[in-house]
Design a protein around this nucleic acid. Structure first.
Lengths: 367, 367
DNA sequence: CTGAAAGCGCTAACAA
DNA sequence: TTGTTAGCGCTTTCAG
């Protein structure tokens, strides 16, 4: 027999109904509306199902008819497996999974690696809505999601589109707070380590042009906040070296810090747009024999556990809450009239990696 | 209009075809078989689609027809969100996600919390196969998965069922190796910390009866391996206290260690069936002022990064590989004749938390 | 290269 | 309480 790709389907609802001499409705009801038929009849149906190996209503056919898939799709900018390595992504996922679980919805991880331009995975996904987590604004997968006639909520992205809900934090304001902390300590020679700014790989100094063209909103906002804060004390952004890394890892942070300090040895503080990068910078400092925070101030962003253990000065953002909020926004069956927005609070955490620069110390001790 | 639950679907393939005055086949081909129609016609179709807001073929309808969903389902024993907290589960997921991504398949996390007896989530899941990760043998969700007429691979479970593939490690042999390490050091007074053994919550000493009735194969095997190893040096299993914890966390391990050592202060080594529990035991030892390994030997199982940082003596198992292997086994379109099995290697890692017991030291120093 | 016909398996009015 | 009637939106032989 020219069977289907997978495995033969032993019986269908129709065949079962025929076998029993009842209507398809009755069989369907036996599964979905037990109260719509007598107990004995239902028992007979279920028993026959067992006997014939009928596995219950086919979920896909059911979905087609009911127009709901019982799952939400998650679109990530990164390779899927990355989501399980990055602590921020993991936290977000945990929160999202929690929300889905509560609502009895599945969570479909859509295989949309940024390498492939192939968006069929997005088209294929049988979901009732999408959560889009921190992808580039011009990501083709994201565009494909917007095409789909299902609700969507984006995280860590601007409210680009009509009818798309959003959850995030005020990255710019948060980073402004960090900048003020750093400048208040007396730092004026500041260097920056940031994550990827665009689609094409680039490791090294990021020109202002490149910064301006950044397609990752979060990075753009964090840099903007820092710029604002430095401007307040008269430091022009054009004197601030910004080094970018495509890979987001501690190793990458270490390498970037080396690069930055080699090119700009006068720097007294490295502000990083993520804790992971900051942990790398910290490692570099240790390895090179620089005392933190005495010789060098290093700050992060996110508030990951490992950063906490290292005493990192950082901005803590509620990643798990972000995931939960995203899920709830999507699943909440309310009036989906106008786009909603959830902005969660952040907290400046002053750890043991930030302090006045040596020069300032000398200056003050001269009193 | 009495629209569908979600959102109106602006246009369908049929309506597009009608609009254009072509057949549905042609429109379908425009999406799925570009080579089956002339380029200009295809362009016309796509252009009309854009104009009418046709989002492309509906994935669910398509799945129904093609009999493939483009996704694999993952069934976890724990609450979904746990998967993102436990490092072993995270590693497994990372490997599985990698395999799925390579095959262009989605990964659907099925919301099957062990609390709920409700298995509809399993019935609902539109997937081409299931991966079942370390669930109880009698878990109703698992049983529901087996009902479904799709291929299934289990991880960390015995080859229970017909036609079900399996991946895992030899937990029993691995733990035997650990037992030999511990006994070779001279330990005879051994206590055990293990994870949950059954469905109903139980925290405290686990009787031999309860151990025998354990429905978590991994725990059963690890305990068996330890029993084998102790038997080799004449230690009867009935003298070995085994303390169980339902929750799998460092805190739980800490509490269990306290309980164990309070009840059995003569113990010189605590063998744990997971690193997480062992880290808890370690914490308890520190807090109580016990020197490890001088006063107390502590061993784990799994080889998680944090354990490595703590210098834990443990059995390292390739969790990521397990995930990858599970995915590949499922996705591989080979003869699915007889059930296949993948047993991955483990490695005994001797860290700084195991050593001869004091008594043995005294004994030898008497020479 | 294009079209007509025949369902995939199920659910939801509505009627009996 | 049960059955009848229509599709959900799509793909796919098989003819033209």
């Amino acid at each position: 027999m020219s069977g289907p790709p997978n495995i033969r389907r032993p019986a269908t609802l129709a065949s079962l109904a025929a076998e029993l001499g009842v209507s398809r409705t009755t069989v369907s009801n036996a599964y979905n509306r037990p109260d719509q038929l007598s107990a004995p009849l239902r028992a007979r149906v279920l028993e026959a199902a067992r006997r014939l190996g009928y596995p219950g209503p086919d979920p896909v056919a059911r979905s087609l008819r009911t127009r709901r898939a019982g799952a939400v799709g998650l679109l990530l900018t990164e390779a899927l497996s990355y989501a399980f390595r990055d602590p921020v992504a993991t936290g977000f996922l945990e929160g999202l999974a929690l929300a889905c679980e509560r609502a009895g919805q599945g969570l479909l991880l859509v295989p949309a690696s940024p390498e492939h331009e192939d968006v069929t995975a997005v088209h294929q996904a049988g979901v009732d809505g999408f959560v889009v987590y921190s992808v580039r604004e011009d990501d083709p997968h994201f565009l494909a999601v917007l095409q789909r006639p299902v609700p969507t909520v984006v995280c860590d992205q601007p409210v680009g589109v009509e009818g798309v809900d959003r959850v995030g934090v005020d990255d710019r304001a948060a980073m402004l707070g960090m900048a003020r902390h750093v400048t208040a300590l007396g730092h004026r020679r500041v260097g920056v380590l940031c994550m990827r700014l665009g689609a094409q790989r680039s490791d090294g100094p990021a020109s202002e042009a490149r910064q301006a063209a950044a397609t990752y909103p979060v990075q753009r906002d964090r840099l903007a906040g820092l710029r604002d804060g430095l401007a307040e004390v008269g430091v022009s952004w054009s004197e601030v070296p910004v080094h970018e890394r495509f890979e987001h890892s501690v190793d990458a942070g270490e390498a970037a810090a080396a690069e930055l300090l080699t090119a700009h040895p006068e720097i007294t503080a490295i502000v990083c747009t993520s804790d992971i990068l900051a942990l790398g910078a910290l490692r570099y400092a240790v390895q090179r024999g620089l005392a933190v925070p005495d010789d060098l101030t290093i700050t992060g962003f996110d508030g990951v556990p490992e950063g906490g253990r290292a005493g990192l000065t950082t901005v803590r953002q509620p990643v798990r809450e972000k995931g939960r909020a995203a899920g709830e926004l999507l699943l909440e069956r309310g009036d989906r009239n106008r786009p909603r927005q959830v902005i969660l609070p952040t907290e400046l955490v002053i750890g043991t990696t930030s302090r006045e620069p040596r020069v300032a110390q000398r200056f003050f001790s001269g009193w």
